[in-house]
């Protein structure tokens, strides 16, 4: 009896996911996006593609860090040979930097518009275009209704969207599948070497729809994401002591 109840509940939960636009993953696509333990925070343990992610970047430093993490994600999304759109009003992204995250910058199309309103319009249009790898839009504010429109667009087209909230004034509810915040962390160079090491961030999932928010340390090393665990860090410190 108890067992059957559990089954029913899990079935219902799955149905809820389905109604909210989470299609169950296709078997061969369940490779993951390379985020390691962070993916466990999402429903079904899979990074949701075909959805909108919201990224908070209150400072330019965080925007740079977010750009890095996102470039890594786009690289995975663009693997099958897609293109990607980057919509913004005041673009600071330096295209050659994308190459450091395995994204060929010539496959990214930048659209510079005048007003925030146009950003959302352009994003909605772009999200309707089936087959695009990803659409990234930098916008300051977005209302619930506007995010709902974007959500409806991706539900049909299965395009992944990223909203970069540069210096947001107020954080309302949105339909976005996850709200991220990425903060740069001091890098750890190879033991015994001077200089700046691989980019390292604190990745915080402030809100995950039907998932578990959390905070992780992540490093981009040698062309892939590398989770930084306490054990690893401890090891590094010890090694440095030995080297020092």
């Amino acid at each position: 009896m108890q067992h059957a109840k559990k089954d029913i509940i899990s079935q219902l939960q799955k149905n809820i996911l389905l109604w909210q636009g989470f299609a169950p993953p296709v078997a061969d696509k369940a490779k993951g996006i390379g985020l390691g333990p962070i993916e466990e925070a999402f429903p079904n343990g899979i990074f949701p593609t075909g959805a909108i992610h919201e990224m908070l970047c209150p400072t330019p430093e965080q925007a740079a860090a977010t750009g890095g993490l996102m470039a890594g994600l786009i690289a995975a999304l663009m693997k099958p040979g897609g293109a990607c759109l980057w919509i913004s009003t005041s673009r600071k992204l330096f295209p050659p930097a994308l190459m450091g995250f395995d994204v060929s910058p010539d496959r990214v199309i930048f659209i510079d518009v005048q007003r925030d309103k146009d950003v959302l319009w352009a994003m909605e249009e772009a999200l309707k275009c089936e087959g695009l790898a990803a659409v990234i839009a930098e916008t300051r504010e977005i209302s619930f209704a506007q995010s709902r429109r974007l959500q409806l667009a991706v539900e049909n087209s299965k395009v992944t969207g990223f909203l970069l909230r540069n210096d947001p004034r107020k954080l309302g509810t949105t339909t976005c599948v996850a709200r991220w915040q990425i903060t740069p962390l001091p890098s750890e160079p190879e033991p015994g070497l001077p200089g700046v090491g691989w980019p390292r961030w604190r990745v915080e999932l402030l809100r995950v729809r039907n998932g578990n928010p959390g905070s992780w340390k992540l490093e981009w090393a040698d062309g892939r994401f590398e989770p930084v665990t306490e054990v690893n860090e401890e090891l590094n410190v010890q090694e440095r002591r030995i080297a020092g």
Binding site: P80, G82, A83, R107, K128, C129, E130, G131, L132, A133
Partner: peptide, 14 residues
Amino acid sequence: AESCGLENNSLAEL
């Protein structure tokens, strides 16, 4: 229709 490269028509139309 899986991947939409730069050569894709729907991208040009967009």
